[in-house]
């Protein structure tokens, strides 16, 4: 899922400072599950901003709404009226949600309330961890189901660097060495010898740095 976290309150207040009437729009999918932008977080954000406004003597109105998915226009259309009635939208969706709003409502001012952090999963209650870099050219098959692109700080493809120590990364004792994880998995699976092969340079063109990538499926078009 997409994992995000709320932006600092000061930054949020800064972004919406020119506007009197703001719709705080949550999303019922990924960011609900990671407690960053679901219905409850919309309530918390609205309450917080209302009080902050009251304390600083600003008269502002905050509407609250949450749609099933901000990243699909059909769901956004359900709140079109509310969107039309406000000066700006503060989206608690991921970056995709913010952009979907911008595309669907060309004249609406929309601002992000979250930082979209990574593609990942909850590893324990209250802890999320990155698992995928959306590189467009999956290599998990080679690395026993552990991604070196996202779990190694240097995205190395040919084994750990010299900074791997006691299972943690050189950059922080809080970051497990992705390559130790890969090594351990390969050992369990009896596949350590596959590490002796030299993995050629990766084709990064399938991933970042190419403007808006699209997938077109003719068979699914109407």
């Amino acid at each position: 899922m997409i994992v995000g976290e709320q932006k600092p309150l000061d930054e949020i207040r800064d972004q919406i400072s020119p506007f009197k009437k703001v719709l705080i729009l949550g999303c019922g999918t990924c960011v609900t599950v990671c407690f960053a932008g679901g219905e409850k977080e919309v309530g918390v954000m609205a309450s917080t901003l209302r009080m902050a406004g009251a304390v600083s003597g600003q008269e502002k109105e905050f509407l609250e709404a949450t749609v099933k998915r901000q990243c699909e226009w059909e769901f956004l259309d359900q709140v079109a009226e509310q969107i039309a009635s406000v000066d700006a939208v503060l989206s608690l969706g991921c970056g995709i949600g913010v952009q979907a709003i911008a595309e669907r409502f060309p004249k609406v001012r929309v601002y992000p309330g979250l930082n979209t952090s990574f593609l990942g999963m909850p590893v324990e209650q209250g802890v999320w961890s990155a698992r995928c870099a959306a590189c467009g050219d999956c290599v998990l098959g080679r690395f026993a189901g552990v991604c070196p692109i996202v779990r190694c700080s240097k995205s190395l493809l040919n084994g750990p660097c010299g900074g791997s120590h006691d299972g943690v990364c050189e950059i922080s004792p809080d970051i497990p060495c992705g390559w130790q994880l890969i090594y351990d998995r390969l050992e369990v699976l009896g596949l350590l010898d596959t590490l002796e092969e030299i993995v050629p340079p990766k084709d990064w063109s399938a991933g970042m740095g190419r403007g808006g990538r699209s997938i077109v499926r003719e068979d699914l078009k109407i």
């Binding site: 240097k154 900074g163 340079p201």
Partner: peptide, 22 residues
């Protein structure tokens, strides 16, 4: 190469297009 987060421009974008073997 050491990771940029250990250096004096920790906010820079790490490249690592290749690894040392490649």
């Amino acid at each position: 190469g050491d990771h940029p987060s250990l250096g004096n421009h920790p906010q820079s974008k790490p490249v690592f297009d290749l690894d040392s073997l490649q």
